[in-house]
């Protein structure tokens, strides 16, 4: 077993080669996704995130370079590329728009059915997957189109989890949801990773989410991987560097910077609300006793 779940080696992809619409989407990217943790991939629109993901699960074949899954080239046997999709589950952006079955149960079992599993196994996986995303049994026979936006999203994610992929990739899993919906989805994902120990990749352009949930973070810019490290180290690169890459520092970091400027003895390397709480609460208590 290789140390990394997925390794990209010098991977490139260009859309519309040889036409006036030619566009280099991914440019010689090297990336190693560590096993069993949540890795974040961050980059603003057009940085090549989606193309990169589709190469990870065999939907797109890299025009240069290789993609290794568990140390093996995924394109070794092009005829069996479908199996790669089962091993690397990809949840697209706004996955609720892919729901099509009459009931939640049927929709979630679409993936496992395509894998050719037995009915009992499908049933077990559907139940497990729906439990992970917090959809109760009372909704199993409801039409997915009658659910709320957040529920639809979670059913769609369950549809991929039910295939029990070694690596789960989610492209902007919380896009368009309200704060509570976001927290729920990310909570589900963290819980899924803890319980199964499987590898998870989250793609987002929200630095706040990355800071909170990703253990390692890769930064994409203009089709190139410009940084790949522990999330904390990436964020410590400093505001100017990050902003040059089109990324915003988390809002809580901005707040802490302001406080430091105003003369409070706080660290500037704070990236989540939790950490800020730990920094600020003692100060607040200290302040009270002074008064």
């Amino acid at each position: 077993m290789s140390e990394y779940a997925i390794e990209l080696k010098g991977v490139s992809y260009t859309y519309g080669k040889g036409t006036p619409f030619m566009k280099l989407a991914v440019d010689h990217v090297d990336l190693n996704i560590r096993r069993g943790i949540i890795t974040g991939i961050i980059g603003h629109t057009g940085s090549g995130k989606s193309t990169l993901l589709q190469m990870m699960n065999g939907l797109l074949r890299p025009q240069e370079g290789t993609v290794l899954l568990d140390g093996k080239d995924v394109w070794e046997k092009p005829g069996k590329i479908r199996e790669i999709a089962f091993r690397v589950g990809l949840v697209f952006q706004y996955p609720e728009y892919q729901l099509f079955e009459e009931t939640v149960r049927k929709d979630v079992s679409y993936g496992p059915k395509n894998m050719g599993l037995s009915d009992a196994e499908i049933e077990r996986r559907v139940k497990e997957a729906l439990a992970f995303v917090g959809i109760g049994e009372e909704l199993y026979d409801a039409s997915p189109f009658d659910l709320s936006g957040g529920q639809k999203r979670r059913v769609a994610i369950a549809g991929v989890i039910a295939m029990e992929p070694e690596v789960l990739i989610l492209d902007e899993p919380a896009a368009g949801l309200d704060p509570r919906g976001r927290a729920e989805i990310f909570g589900n994902i963290v819980n899924y990773k803890e319980k199964t120990g499987r590898t998870v990749i989250i793609v987002s352009h929200s630095m706040d989410d990355m800071a909170r949930y990703a253990e390692e973070t890769a930064v994409l810019c203009g089709g190139r991987a410009v940084m790949m490290d522990e999330t904390k180290k990436v964020f410590s690169a400093g505001r100017e560097t990050l902003e040059k890459l089109g990324l915003n520092v988390p809002q809580i970091t901005l707040l802490m910077e302001k406080l430091a400027q105003m003369g409070l003895p706080v660290s500037k390397d704070v990236f989540t609300v939790e950490e800020a709480k730990r920094e600020l609460l003692p100060l607040l208590k200290g302040g009270q006793s002074d008064a």
Partner: peptide
């Protein structure tokens, strides 16, 4: 996008007879 998404869930659009292929398009 939808084709890619369903392919990620193992949809197979290119094998089987005509009826199977038409059925594969429903999703």
């Amino acid at each position: 996008k939808i084709i890619s998404a369903q392919k990620s869930r193992g949809a197979d659009f290119s094998s089987g007879n005509v009826i199977r292929r038409v059925k594969a398009l429903v999703p």
